[in-house]
Design a protein around this nucleic acid. Structure first.
Lengths: 202, 202
DNA sequence: AACAGCATATTGACATTGTCAACATTTTTT
DNA sequence: AAAAAATGTTGACAATGTCAATATGCTGTT
């Protein structure tokens, strides 16, 4: 006898909904996530999700936040490698960031795209995203000390570095780079340009 | 007697629809564009647009393309100022680009966001976007000659510069930068970092 | 154990939306 | 002027988000 007997109460629905929504996002983009289809996949009715999320936007926002947390933890594990120079850490950080975006394009789009706009000031999202910012801040601050360019405002440099990597991620994801072009050299060149640019301004 | 007598045939509908859609995008984002509301605003029924656009996506794609053309023409007028050094041109180009994004955030989002994804290979969009790329290509090629860094692949440098500016535009638009921060210094720092980074790699 | 209250899930209903087919009206062509 | 093409309107339908009413299972109190 199968243990899969469907009980009226799912009893673990919230995380299951988020996981399945993330899968749907990966497969068909955020627009393909439908309350009805989501319920069908999880084996639950269309209305069940409303006991766990106030509406569809809230659900997507939670999925988005989970993406930030995943990315943040990957970034943190790179940063915490104390044996690397700050420059190496900066480069590794950029690569991890870009790898996440390339591997989870639709999820990344959800995190930074217009869907997040209306609810961006929601604490959940703000905290997750701020965590990422703080990680980058620490690395760049260390980099400034290492290279003696500490007279520049760290926050500004963070925004510059973040812009570069985020922009490259966005362009790669949206396939705005011709298909036959190798992306590895572009990533390296982008990171090196930022690093050199920071150094040159010392 | 008013000349506004509503004739059955609008006789100029296509461009009017696109203009009104652009206005709606500016006011309430691309999601707020509804065939019914669009028709109401223009004084036409909901179905009328389907004589000029195969579906809603096609309409938005055309609006997107018109955005590319506008941005492209602004960029071109900056570039064609022959009295400036290539470095100055590069900087001016970045500023024009960012200004467009800041002034037309929803339109910019439409141009580069996920909406364009499914139809990105459509000739209209591809040509408009490629035009922008070509403009940037010429400036950077000139810059390479000016600074003796011509051993680098121009195309790669274009992607790097474009990423930076596009990323900054995206972050500014999505309000991922804290409100109290001045954006002018960030823009300057970003452009200068790229330029210095390019120079340093010579 | 029994019961009450709460958490959770289902279903019917409704408004909104994109889209198509059938029809209406105007313009252009023959 | 008749025919044909172009353009605009309306009714209909399916898909979707969401809410209210209802049903079902769980948990703690007595």
């Amino acid at each position: 006898m199968k243990n899969e007997k469907k009980s009226y109460h799912h009893k673990n629905l919230r995380p299951v909904l988020m996981d399945e929504a993330a899968k749907m996002i990966a497969e068909g983009g955020a627009a393909s996530v439908t309350m009805r289809e989501l319920g069908k996949r999880v084996g639950v009715s269309r209305g069940a999700a409303y006991r766990h999320f106030s509406d569809k936007d809230a659900l997507l926002m939670s999925v988005s936040a989970s993406g930030f947390e995943k990315l943040s933890s990957e970034v943190q594990s790179v940063i915490q490698n104390g044996e690397m120079s700050f420059e190496s850490r900066l480069l590794a950080l950029g690569k991890v960031y870009l790898q996440f975006a390339i591997e989870n394009p639709a999820h990344y789009r959800l995190m930074y795209g217009k869907e997040a706009l209306s609810r961006w000031n929601q604490p959940v999202l703000k905290e997750s995203a701020d965590g990422l910012f703080d990680h980058l801040y620490e690395v760049i601050k260390g980099f400034q000390g290492e290279c003696d360019i500490s007279e520049k405002d760290t926050r500004t440099l963070v925004y510059v570095a973040w812009s570069s990597v985020h922009g490259l991620a966005s362009i790669l994801i949206e396939k705005h780079i011709m298909a036959e072009v190798e992306i590895e050299p572009i990533i390296n060149e982008a990171m090196q340009t930022i690093i050199n640019g920071f150094k040159a301004a010392s």
